[in-house]
């Protein structure tokens, strides 16, 4: 595992412009990923996780989606400024994506085998029959007998469709896989198999993984690092140990409290109070302040900065900036 940055997102802003309002889906987001590393991206529904992943491949529906500013560097090249040809060379080849909903991600009118072969034929200099050959092997890799090559998506179960989608995404041995909740649509046993499979691939091909999920358990199983996303921002990021053993941001703390623990007897789960802010009308200051038990006046007015607390552990909160209730901050508020 090298420390070279494979992907670096700087100050990314994405919004959806509809007729009368603007949804601020991703706000000043910074994120980086080393090669061979897997990063979990965790957050409530509507936090902007899918939008972040889609914007890496420039697949945000436009209209209404617009990337208003930022840089997405892949091996040093800014994908936001890249030419169409270059982007097509990256898509499916160097970076591939597993979409959130396997049921609708496959084209109903082509056989599953051919859909896998399509991406191979496109990026690997090979004949159509070689591509089909390899597509059949990919099916076997994800545990589907290659005899089912000629079948259509409607003949497959949800879990099998998801495997097909995974086979498609790993077919060209990409350097980075963006997996958008690859297991949410699956039942628990299949979930475990799919995660196992992705772990294997990670080891085998040294593939980097951006794994989007609601499920902290999945993160613990698969990821090296984890980023917590709230209202379009990263509020905490660090290695899985750092964040899981010592969550810092009040939102992260709340997240961990809201999941049941086997080894502790808890009377009641404590969900985080309140709701995600309206993305068309985000609160000023720290976006979590309306729900934060520790919020002070400064939190309502000023944005906290990303602060390195220990090792690679970074948090966006005044408490950990060392400024909490400091006179300096009081001054700034005025």
């Amino acid at each position: 595992m090298t420390d070279r940055k494979l992907l670096e997102i700087r100050n990314l802003n994405v919004e959806y412009r509809t007729d009368d309002e603007i949804v601020y889906a991703v706000n000043s987001l910074d994120l980086s990923l080393n090669s061979g590393e897997s990063l979990g991206l965790v957050g409530e529904t509507g936090a902007g996780k899918s939008t972040t992943a889609l914007s890496i491949l420039q697949l945000v529906a436009d209209p209404p989606g617009k990337t208003t500013s930022g840089e997405i560097l892949f091996e040093g090249e800014d994908l936001l400024k890249a030419k169409k040809d270059f982007l097509r060379h990256i898509r499916g080849n160097k970076i591939s994506m597993i979409f959130q909903d396997p049921m609708t991600s496959l084209n109903p009118v082509y056989s599953v085998g051919d859909q896998i072969a399509e991406v191979i034929y496109l990026h690997e200099k090979c004949s159509k029959s070689e591509a089909q050959q390899k597509a059949a092997e990919m099916l076997e890799t994800v545990g589907i007998p290659k005899e089912r090559y000629d079948e259509y998506p409607h003949q497959f179960s949800g879990g099998m469709k998801q495997r097909v989608v995974i086979a498609m995404s790993i077919a060209c041995s990409p350097q980075l896989i963006l997996a958008d909740e690859p297991t949410t649509a699956l039942d628990v046993t299949i979930q475990a198999q799919v995660l196992e499979l992705m772990n294997d691939l990670k080891v085998k091909f040294n593939t980097s993984l951006l794994l989007i999920t609601h499920d902290l358990g999945v993160v613990a199983q698969v990821c090296d690092r984890v980023a917590i996303m709230y209202a379009g921002e990263i509020v905490e990021i660090g290695t899985v140990e750092e964040v899981f053993e010592n969550p810092k941001h009040p939102y992260t703390v709340g997240l961990f409290r809201s999941i049941p623990q086997l080894d502790e007897k808890v009377d009641r789960l404590k969900p985080i109070k309140g709701q995600m802010p309206d993305p068309t009308n985000l609160p000023s200051g720290c976006k979590f302040h309306p729900r934060c038990p520790h919020a002070i006046e400064a939190c309502t007015k000023i944005q906290p900065a990303m602060t390195n607390v220990k090792g690679t552990h970074i948090v966006k909160c005044f408490i950990h900036e060392g400024k909490f209730e400091s006179t300096e901050l009081m001054e700034e508020v005025k």
Binding site: L57, S96, S105, N107, H123
Partner: peptide
């Protein structure tokens, strides 16, 4: 054109005209 599988086709790196004709139009 708005369907997810069309986005999948785009994510493969296909040229836009192929995405439209082969994946969207056929459907």
């Amino acid at each position: 054109i708005r369907q997810d599988y069309v986005r999948t086709a785009r994510a493969k790196g296909l040229k836009e005209y192929k995405v439209i004709i082969k994946h969207a139009l056929r459907n």
